[in-house]
Each structure stands twice: as structure tokens, then as C-alpha cells.
Simulated assay, not measured.
Amino acid sequence: MFEGNDDLPYYGTVFKLVAGDHAFAPILSKGKEQLLAFRQILSKREQADNNIAYFIDKDFDGFKGYPEGDDVYCTDGYSIENQMVGPEVLCELLRSEYKCEASNDGECVDAIVQHYEAMLTEFVDVMRPVNKVIYYARKNKVYLSSIENRIRKYLKVEGDTVISAGNDIFELVGWPPTVDFSNVDFEDPSFLELDPKASWRGKFLYGFFVEMLTLYKTDRTSDQPTHFTNKVGMKFDPRGESVRLFAVCAPVPDSLKHFILSLKTKAANS
């Protein structure tokens, strides 16, 4: 059972990579709260169905007070999106979709990855206040009506610099108008312990990754590329439905491998 439809492309791909032809029937929820509440209801039955497994994002609030268990996979980082935006994925895309191997541009790959890592550092600086507010809200049970995930609402990529878009972050994250934030201390030592790349909001990271891939595509197909040696045409659309491709390129977390293989073993013994 998954939190929603957005999870299917990633987990469906990983299931095939890890468990081969082991079939699973997806059940979709309408968010983590509903999924965990449903699991709680089923746990009260006299005979639990051992073939039902649950997949949730860790987010900033983990299990939201519900009990953990070996029937639930919780991401190591914030969400599945955090797994798909690393240098390993960028390397694979540059070699294949950006045709670096085919056009003898292989030497450009390392330099572009270093450029992406440098830009990611600037992304972290710009997005720190936003993640800090969301973190505070989740930890203090402040209900956010709707978090805006479109990364361009938060930042702009101009040349080799990432700058704030200048919009009100409290409006963007859906901060309730009835809760005064003017005197709130958003500084939290536990927030500082988080790894931004792994444990900050994944949809922001994913959106930034797509922005950078788009920038690299524009450069790759220009008459005078900056990051590449040669101009090369390419069909890959970073803004398209790319989750399955990213999932194939991304390393599968060991925790997820073990969980999926345990499901396969359970099914074989049932």
C-alpha cells in the first residue's frame, strides 16, 4: 500500500530491479496519515494479512505517532525523491541521454557533476528557511494547508548562481493565518543535525534537479556550449515523466532491497 499514485513509478521500477518477476498489486491511499490509520484498523483483526505491506516517506514527522513494524517500509531520508537526485543519477543521464559517451564528451561528466554539487550548495542556502519553517510546523503540529512544490516559486537559477525568487515563504507553505509566526523561534538544534540532501523536503530537491537538467540540456543543444565540448541534439525532456528513468539510474537503498526481498520470501512461504 502506497501513500499515493506518485509512488508507483518509483516503487514499481525498484520492485522489478530487486525482485525480478515477483508480482505485487498496488493499493493507493490519500496520504501517509490515511495509510497508517488504515493499517492500525487492520492490525486489530484477529488474523492479519501478512501479504500486505506499507510504504511511507519519512518526511519530517516519521510515523506520526503510529507504531513501527516489519510490515512498513519507511524511507531512510525524507522521501523517495531524495533517492533520485544524486550525482550517480546525473552521471548516468549525462552518459546516455546527453550522449556524452557517444560524442566523446566523457571528460565533461566529472566537471558537470562538480558544477551541480556547487549549485546544490547554493540551493541549500536558499531553501534552508523554507525547510526550517516546514520542520517547525511538523514538529509542533501546525497544520499547513498546502505546500507549493513548484521550485520556481522559491528560487531562480541565474548563470552559476541560485537566488531566492523573493516570494513569501509562509504563503508558499500554507501557513495558517490564525497562527502568528512573528515571535516564533524557528531555530531547532535537531534541524541542524539533518543532512539537507537526504533529509530535507524531497520534492524541492527533485524540482531543483529538473531545473539543472534543463539548464544542461539548453547548453548541450546550443551552438556554443559552456559545459560540453560539442553541440549535440537530444530528445530527453527533463520536465517529462522521468521518475522511472531516474529510478533505474539511482542506487537502490539497502534497506529497501532487504524489505522487498523479505516480502518475496513471505509470499513464497505463505
Rank of each mutant, 00 (worst) to 15 (best):
E68V: 03
S96K: 06
G106D: 13
E81G: 07
E81I: 04
C100S: 02
E81Q: 03
D71A: 03
D110W: 14
L94M: 01
D105Y: 03
N104G: 15
F63E: 07
L90D: 00
V89Q: 04
G86S: 09
K58T: 10
L93M: 10
P87Q: 01
I112R: 10
E68N: 12
F63W: 10
D76Q: 04
E92L: 06
A102F: 07
D61P: 06
L93G: 01
V85A: 14
L90R: 07
E92G: 10
D110Q: 15
G77S: 15
C74I: 14
E101A: 01
G69R: 00
F63K: 08
N104K: 10
T75M: 12
A102K: 12
I52R: 13
A111L: 09
P67E: 08
G62Y: 11
M84A: 00
R95N: 05
E97A: 08
E68R: 06
G86D: 04
I52V: 08
I80P: 04
S96C: 02
D71E: 08
C91R: 11
E88P: 00
Y73N: 02
S79R: 04
K64L: 09
F60T: 10
G77V: 13
C100L: 00
E88I: 11
V85M: 15
A102T: 02
N51A: 10
K99C: 01
C74F: 11
C100D: 09
N82D: 03
A111I: 14
S96V: 02
E68T: 12
V85I: 09
L93D: 04
Y78C: 08
D59Q: 04
Q83V: 06
G69L: 11
T75Q: 04
Y73I: 12
E81C: 02
Y66G: 00
R95S: 03
C108R: 08
T75G: 15
F55K: 03
K64N: 07
N82I: 06
A102I: 07
Y78Q: 02
D57Y: 13
E92Y: 13
M84G: 07
N82L: 01
K99S: 11
D71L: 06
C91H: 09
C108Q: 11
A102G: 02
A111M: 12
A111F: 02
N51H: 12
C74V: 15
Y66L: 10
E88V: 09
C74L: 13
E68K: 03
E101G: 12
E92R: 04
G62T: 02
D71W: 05
I112Y: 11
G69W: 15
D57N: 15
